[in-house]
Write a protein that binds this DNA or RNA. Structure first.
Lengths: 126, 126
DNA sequence: GCTCATATATCGCGAGCCGATATATCTTCT
DNA sequence: AGAAGATATATCGGCTCGCGATATATGAGC
């Protein structure tokens, strides 16, 4: 199983495809939604990533639709893609947990007031 | 505040420096320890990252020691570095939480047994 | 008619990870 | 004594990848 590039855009593209197949622009919108408008996926990033993910078998072209003259190419997450994403999510959660735990332990007591507002472990879970 | 490259190596370097100043090789060892030997930081990655992080003011050269003819250059995390790391950790935790939540909701029920073993939210928190 | 949202796709620059390489000391095993 | 491995620093070049720029086309709203 190829380890995946470890970058946020790719991670969020796979995450957006968990529940159902989506077309390119639909992925952009879903990523914006699940990140609470924090991440605006760049169009150049998206299609480059989709090409690579398809080659690696993590996503696959599902179907093409033509709606009012506009082409819609749907992509779906493969089982391999879901497995890689799960491993990646686990890794990220572990890394974040270590950093947050250490920050609380060593940085907070010495007077970095206000920093704790950023330590929101739960995030915008959907 | 510069957003930071969003890559795991840089994130772990900053994390390793939270508790106390460390020299290059000490960072490699600490990263190996806090990731439970999962991440073996590459030497080329390390020094390139330290140069960039110094230029951005997220870490700074603390002191140079000579121990048995071997030079040790210590780096420490700056307040700016701690702030950036906290923001980054928060972002990662949020992303991971969304992915894990969605994977549980949509992927697990349809028969991807065994996948849940990877969904360890707590990770190796230290 | 103009602008904005929707929808796809490609090219090139810059940033960054990492393998390879170079150099030097100390300890451990044969 | 010699080899190997851990400790310790640093640089260079290739490859990957994010993203800004660019191109193209339809429908809605002003």
């Amino acid at each position: 199983m190829k380890p995946l590039g470890r970058t946020e855009p790719v991670f969020l593209i796979l995450t957006a495809l968990i529940d159902e197949p989506r077309h390119g622009y639909g992925i952009v919108q879903e990523v914006r939604r699940i990140t609470d408008s924090r991440v605006d996926l760049r169009i150049g990033t998206l299609y480059g990533a989709l090409t690579r993910l398809s080659e690696d078998g993590l996503v696959e072209a599902h179907r093409d639709e033509v709606e009012n003259g506009r082409l819609r190419r749907y992509y779906r997450l493969t089982d391999a893609g879901a497995a890689v994403l799960a491993a990646e999510a686990s890794r990220m959660a572990a890394d974040a947990a270590v950093a947050i735990s250490r920050l609380k332990k060593f940085t907070m007591p010495t007077g970095h007031a206000g920093l704790d507002t950023k330590l929101d472990t739960n995030g915008g879970a959907i």
